[in-house]
C-alpha cells in the first residue's frame, strides 16, 4: 500500500480534489476488496465503496492522525459494509438467492488445477456469506487483508478478545459448512 503523506491528507481535507484522488488511488483497491468480500456482490461493492470515499471526503477535516489513515478507512468501510450486509440480509429474496447459491457450491465437484482454485475461491466468498456480518468482517480483515488482531480491534472498535472469539466462531462455522459439503459429495 502506497503511504499517503500528512500534507496530502490536509490538502484533501481543505478541498483539494487532486489530493483526495491520491488517497483514493492508494487505498481504493483495499476498501473495494474488503467491501466486495463482505457483500459478494459487485454492484453493491461499487456503491458502498463510493459511499465510503464520499464519507471520508466529508469527514477528513475531523481526522486527527491519532490512528493511521488506513485503519480509519477500514473502520468506515467495514461499518458501511456491515450495515449494508445487515440491510440486505433482511430482504427475503436475497436470502433465497444465497441459499440457492450455497446449494450449488456445496454440490460443486472439487476439480483439479486452475478450475479447482477458481472454484475454491468462489466457494470461500460464498461460504463467507453464511457468517454473520460481524464475524465476516473479522475474517475478511484477517484472512484477505492480513491485518493483525490489534489492527482489527482498532478498525472495528472492539477488544482483542472479541476479535479472537469472532474469528473462532466464524471459522468453526466454515469448517462445519466444509464438512457438510464433503458429506453432500459422498
Amino acid at each position: 500500500m502506497r503511504e499517503i503523506s500528512e500534507p496530502t491528507v490536509r490538502d484533501a481535507a481543505q478541498g483539494s480534489v487532486e489530493a483526495f484522488e491520491a488517497i483514493y488511488r492508494a487505498y481504493g483497491p483495499y476498501v473495494y476488496n474488503v467491501v466486495y468480500r463482505m457483500l459478494h456482490h459487485a454492484d453493491d461493492a461499487q456503491d458502498v465503496t463510493q459511499e465510503v470515499f464520499v464519507t471520508v471526503y466529508r469527514k477528513l477535516k475531523t481526522f486527527e492522525f491519532r490512528s493511521s489513515l488506513k485503519t480509519w478507512l477500514y473502520r468506515i468501510a467495514t461499518n458501511l459494509a456491515i450495515n449494508h450486509a445487515k440491510k440486505r440480509e433482511r430482504e427475503q429474496h436475497r436470502t433465497v438467492a444465497l441459499d440457492e447459491k450455497m446449494a450449488s457450491v456445496l454440490a460443486t465437484d472439487p476439480a483439479q488445477g486452475a478450475v479447482e482454485r477458481h472454484l475454491q475461491r468462489e466457494q470461500v466468498s460464498v461460504l463467507l456469506k453464511a457468517l454473520n456480518p460481524d464475524q465476516r468482517a473479522c475474517l475478511v480483515l484477517r484472512d484477505f487483508e492480513g491485518l493483525t488482531y490489534e489492527e482489527i480491534a482498532a478498525a472495528l472498535d472492539i477488544n482483542l478478545n472479541t476479535v479472537r472469539s469472532r474469528l473462532k466462531r466464524g471459522r468453526e462455522k466454515l469448517l462445519a459448512l466444509s464438512k457438510e459439503r464433503i458429506q453432500h459429495e459422498m
Binding site: 478541498g15 480534489v17 483526495f20 484522488e21 483514493y24 481504493g28 483497491p29 473495494y32 476488496n33 466486495y36 461493492a45 461499487q46 465503496t49 463510493q50 470515499f53 464520499v54 471526503y57 466529508r58 482454485r117 475454491q120 475461491r121 466457494q123 470461500v124 484472512d143 484477505f144 471459522r171 466454515l174 469448517l175 466444509s178
Partner: peptide, 30 residues
C-alpha cells in the same frame, strides 16, 4: 479450509467508474 483458499484469493480492483462517480459527487459538494 481456513488457510489455503484465502491465500489463493486474488486482489480485486474497483472499476474506474467508481472514481468517476466519487469525483462527480465531491466536485458537486465543493
Amino acid at each position: 479450509v481456513l488457510v489455503a483458499p484465502f491465500r489463493q484469493a486474488d486482489r480485486l480492483y474497483p472499476p474506474e467508474a467508481v472514481w468517476d462517480k466519487i469525483h462527480a459527487r465531491i466536485v458537486e459538494e465543493e
